Computed example of a mutant assay.
Amino acid sequence: MSIPGAPSLSRSPIGRLRSPTSEPELNAMRAAAWHRHGVAAIPVDDITDPWLRQAITNEANRRWGRRNGGNAHGR
C-alpha cells in the first residue's frame, strides 16, 4: 500500500533478494580467489590435521580477533 503523492521506492539492487550461495558456487569462488589473488579460503572445520587447524586458527585470531560463534573446542 502506498500513500497518494508519496515518492515511489527506489529500485535499488540492494533491495533484491538473492538465493543463498550453493556449495559448488562457494568452491568456485574459493578457487578463483586462490588462482587470481593467492588467497586460500578453507573452512577451518575442513582441516583434518589438528596441529595445522590450530596454527591457522591462532593466526586468524591474531590478525582479526576471535570469532563470534562456531566451535569453541572445549571452552
Rank of each mutant, 00 (worst) to 15 (best):
S19Y: 07
R62F: 13
I56R: 11
I47T: 05
G15R: 10
A41T: 04
G74I: 02
L52R: 08
D49V: 03
N61Y: 12
G38E: 14
T48W: 06
S22Y: 07
R53S: 02
L9Y: 09
S22R: 10
H35G: 07
E59C: 02
H35D: 15
G15T: 06
A40W: 15
G65F: 09
G70R: 02
W34M: 09
I56K: 12
D46Y: 10
P13N: 11
Q54D: 15
I14A: 13
A28M: 10
P7E: 13
A72L: 15
A60M: 09
S19D: 12
R63S: 10
S2F: 14
S19P: 02
M29R: 11
A33E: 13
R16F: 03
W34S: 06
H35S: 15
D45P: 00
M1S: 10
R11E: 14
A33T: 02
G38Q: 10
R11Y: 11
W64I: 00
R16D: 08
G65C: 07
H73V: 00
I47E: 10
V44R: 04
G38A: 05
T21I: 14
E59N: 04
M1P: 04
N68C: 02
H35K: 14
A31H: 11
L52P: 01
D46R: 12
A72T: 13
P43Y: 09
A41E: 06
E25F: 01
R36C: 02
N71S: 01
I47G: 06
P13M: 09
A40L: 15
R67W: 05
P4E: 10
T48V: 04
R66P: 02
D45K: 02
M1A: 11
E59D: 10
P43A: 08
H37C: 09
R75Q: 13
R11N: 13
R67D: 07
S8Q: 15
S19W: 05
A40D: 15
N68W: 03
I56S: 06
E59Q: 05
T57S: 06
I56V: 15
A72Y: 15
R18H: 07
A60W: 09
S12Y: 08
P43S: 08
P7S: 10
I42P: 00
T48N: 10
A55K: 11
A6G: 05
L26E: 04
T48E: 13
A55P: 00
H73L: 01
R16A: 02
A28W: 09
A31I: 04
I14H: 13
M1C: 03
N68I: 00
P7N: 07
N27P: 01
R18G: 05
M29T: 03
R63W: 14
P13T: 06
W34E: 14
I14K: 12
D49S: 04
W34C: 03
R66Y: 08
E59F: 02
Q54R: 15
G65I: 01
M1I: 04
R67S: 08
E25K: 03
A40C: 15
E23S: 05
N61R: 12
L26P: 00
S19C: 06
W64S: 00
G15C: 06
S8R: 11
R66A: 08
V44I: 14
S2R: 15
A55V: 06
Q54V: 01
R67H: 07
N61V: 07
L26R: 07
M29A: 12
I56C: 14
S10M: 04
